[in-house]
Design a protein around this nucleic acid. Sequence first.
DNA 1: ATTAGAAAGTGGCTTTAGTCAACTATTTTT
DNA 2: AAAAATAGTTGACTAAAGCCACTTTCTAAT
Lengths: 144, 144
Amino acid sequence: MSENNVQKIKRFNRFYTRTMGLFNLYTDESPYSATEALILFEISTRNDCTAAYLSNYFLLDKSYMSRILKHFERDGLIIKSFSEEDRRIQHIKLTDLGGEALKTLADKASLNVEGMIDGIAEKEIEVLIESMQKIEEILYPKIR
Amino acid sequence: MSENNVQKIKRFNRFYTRTMGLFNLYTDESPYSATEALILFEISTRNDCTAAYLSNYFLLDKSYMSRILKHFERDGLIIKSFSEEDRRIQHIKLTDLGGEALKTLADKASLNVEGMIDGIAEKEIEVLIESMQKIEEILYPKIR
DNA sequence: ATTAGAAAGTGGCTTTAGTCAACTATTTTT
DNA sequence: AAAAATAGTTGACTAAAGCCACTTTCTAAT
């Protein structure tokens, strides 16, 4: 395993982290953080979502997650309902209001991404996206 | 500008952020955070580095940066020296000790990246890296 | 069947990260 | 020569995230 390869990947990691940071502009005005937006998104896609799943998925402390979810619940973005099979577990679902909140956050994130590719030729954007998909394809097996 | 393209890029952003997070294992034992490691790295490469440059580059508040640098200075990782031309400015340089600290951090980051590509075929790794370089190439003009 | 252990979730407390405003000391602009 | 801008520091504050102890429920091992 070439040390040079590792250096190139580290370089990309620095580059891409910073690039995402630079285009992270439209998120400041929101009452929810980027992390919270990701959590809402994950709740919306995953069904039978639980707090344990989320804290595991995002590598966040379960008590922290508990508080975030309590916050969401108070704001009416989600509802929690105890599982019939296992009464320790509460399934989490997005409410309509939660869906709207997510949409608002997602739209802002989209604006950021549009800013990121604005002015780049359509051909280049295609290459960009193909490259991204290639990376996902190659690394996906590694994240189980 | 296709909305679909934006969705695909957002998807990649989620994927890659999470992937980097999952392989961020060897950094817990260190007294310096990932951000601090990046700052040390930037100091090492950039010459005539200043606090203002760093807080601008990383989009971090200047007071926060000031404290981080003070910490580095106390730990003997950097030295600050007033510029001759402009006496508001202090140039920052890595000490030998700072270089060693950076190397330790960089080695740990390398281990993480090795874990990330471990088990992937050499051919695939080449495609991975080409894709990363393509992305850098396309987005580089956008970050000035 | 009983009990030891594990897992899900919560609450109190602390630490880490980052913001905001005020201030000093220089330099640049007008 | 003011006035405005820039570099950096400090103090007080807020937000993000983690640590630990606890309850409840379930699972596994006797």
